[in-house]
Computed example of a mutant assay.
Amino acid sequence: MSVKYSVVLRKNPAKSAEPGKYYAHAQAYGEMDFDSLCEEVNGRCTVTRADVSAVLESVLDSMNKGLANGQIVRLGNFGSFQIGVRSHGAAKEKEFIPTMIRGTKISFRPGKLLTNMQKTLNYAQVAKLPVKVTTNV
């Protein structure tokens, strides 16, 4: 298997007068949903698909609780998750108030398992996916 990509023209928004350059753009082909993941794991070990589903749901619930409490959630060689915040700035520290926080994001840092996988990827160029056209009727 290989990572599929197409080549696309992109302009630098900071230097709009300069001509664009061509860059690789990853193309996803299909997806692995929760049920497919459970089935895949079931095929690699002795636990049932229902057991895999129950464990993964429990892991997600525990991750949710840990992240909501401000903890870093580490999943061994898979990687770690942490809450980050986005906010408006204040001129002085004492002027900052909690309502200046615009929202949060979840940061993921891959561990050794995924980092090592990235080092061994193969690539295959494919045609660009068609642009989706939406109409307002």
Results as ranks from 00 to 15, higher is better:
residue 2 S to L: 04
residue 3 V to T: 13
residue 4 K to H: 11
residue 4 K to G: 01
residue 5 Y to P: 02
residue 6 S to H: 10
residue 9 L to M: 10
residue 9 L to P: 00
residue 10 R to H: 05
residue 11 K to N: 10
residue 12 N to I: 02
residue 13 P to D: 07
residue 15 K to V: 02
residue 15 K to C: 02
residue 16 S to I: 08
residue 16 S to W: 01
residue 17 A to Q: 13
residue 17 A to D: 15
residue 20 G to H: 08
residue 21 K to I: 10
residue 21 K to W: 01
residue 22 Y to L: 10
residue 23 Y to L: 04
residue 24 A to C: 12
residue 25 H to Q: 13
residue 26 A to G: 03
residue 29 Y to S: 11
residue 29 Y to R: 09
residue 30 G to I: 01
residue 31 E to H: 08
residue 33 D to M: 08
residue 36 S to Q: 15
residue 38 C to L: 07
residue 38 C to A: 12
residue 40 E to Q: 13
residue 41 V to K: 06
residue 41 V to L: 15
residue 42 N to E: 15
residue 43 G to A: 13
residue 49 R to I: 01
residue 49 R to W: 00
residue 50 A to T: 13
residue 51 D to Q: 14
residue 51 D to H: 06
residue 52 V to W: 05
residue 52 V to K: 04
residue 54 A to V: 04
residue 56 L to R: 01
residue 59 V to A: 12
residue 60 L to P: 00
residue 60 L to S: 11
residue 60 L to G: 05
residue 63 M to A: 14
residue 65 K to Q: 12
residue 66 G to E: 08
residue 68 A to P: 01
residue 68 A to S: 15
residue 77 N to W: 00
residue 79 G to L: 03
residue 79 G to C: 04
residue 81 F to Q: 01
residue 82 Q to W: 02
residue 83 I to L: 15
residue 84 G to K: 14
residue 84 G to Q: 11
residue 85 V to S: 13
residue 85 V to T: 14
residue 86 R to N: 12
residue 88 H to C: 03
residue 91 A to P: 06
residue 91 A to C: 00
residue 92 K to M: 09
residue 93 E to C: 02
residue 93 E to S: 12
residue 94 K to H: 08
residue 95 E to L: 09
residue 96 F to G: 03
residue 97 I to K: 15
residue 97 I to D: 05
residue 98 P to C: 04
residue 98 P to M: 04
residue 100 M to F: 12
residue 104 T to Y: 14
residue 105 K to L: 02
residue 106 I to C: 11
residue 107 S to W: 07
residue 107 S to E: 04
residue 110 P to F: 02
residue 112 K to M: 03
residue 114 L to N: 09
residue 114 L to T: 07
residue 115 T to C: 09
residue 115 T to E: 12
residue 115 T to G: 11
residue 116 N to Y: 02
residue 117 M to F: 08
residue 117 M to T: 09
residue 117 M to L: 13
residue 118 Q to L: 12
residue 121 L to P: 05
residue 121 L to Q: 10
residue 124 A to D: 10
residue 126 V to N: 05
residue 126 V to D: 05
residue 127 A to H: 06
residue 128 K to L: 11
residue 128 K to P: 04
residue 129 L to V: 09
residue 131 V to W: 00
residue 132 K to H: 05
residue 132 K to V: 13
residue 132 K to M: 06
residue 133 V to Q: 13
residue 134 T to K: 11
residue 136 N to R: 13
residue 136 N to A: 08
